[in-house]
Nucleic acid binder design. Structure first.
Lengths: 115, 115
DNA sequence: AAAGTATATAAGTATATTCTTATATACTTA
DNA sequence: TAAGTATATAAGAATATACTTATATACTTT
């Protein structure tokens, strides 16, 4: 199990680096929160830019980063593009984060128990 | 509750940005995994550098970033400095991440239910 | 078809990140 | 005290990030 984990962690670290990079920006986090908190199911890029105080190109670039990181999906509908959460990918991201923190916290507990 | 959440999210976004920035580096993630997986409770900086293939200054700089982000504690013992996880802070970090993903996933579920 | 709107992309700039090498600091031990 | 070891810091270089403004692309509507 430890060997599996050790090998797994190299790949996992690279995947988590990409995920954390995508999340490591306050404007992208605000975009995400806006997407969760609005009454609207779908919000256009221009609306999101307005809501977060970003210019349209800046919002577009941030959304692209979130899409590339498999956090969002884009769906074109006429003139507008609606970004939505990539539900399954978000679940998968969360599992990886839980694994990382699980490793850390179980190590903390082992030490507290006196090895 | 929604107003509380909206205000909370601005602060939270800035805190999560700092946390995610600290975690958004493959070498720092590998350092973390090495710290969780070793048999040793405490590992010196030089040992960690060797384990991850980093130079001593690079490892030191990464560890400083993890310490500044309240992920690690440093404890000087004679000639060596031992880094350990900041257990309580890690729990607090995890709670914030869980809140973020909780918002996202509950939004996903709301949409699936048809608003 | 022309004009208007929404979004993306391009190019440039300012800043941040992550290394490197060299050196300083703190401690230990001979 | 001098020499050795561990760690941190400093300074510089290469690269990445995040914005800006300008423009291209895709679609809609008149």
């Amino acid at each position: 199990m430890l060997r599996i984990k050790t090998e797994y962690c190299c790949d996992l670290s690279e995947e988590l680096e990409e995920l954390f990079k995508a999340l490591a920006n306050v404007n992208r986090l605000l975009l995400i929160y806006k997407m969760t908190s609005g009454e609207m199911e779908k919000v256009s890029v221009t609306q999101m830019a307005r809501m977060t105080g970003l210019t349209q190109p800046a919002a577009s670039q941030h959304l692209k980063i979130l899409k590339t990181a498999n956090i969002l999906n884009a769906e074109k509908k006429g003139n507008y593009i609606y970004y939505t959460f990539n539900h399954n990918a978000v679940i998968s991201h969360k599992e990886k984060i839980d694994f990382l923190f699980g490793c850390v916290l179980s190590k903390c507990n082992k030490i507290k128990m006196g090895k």
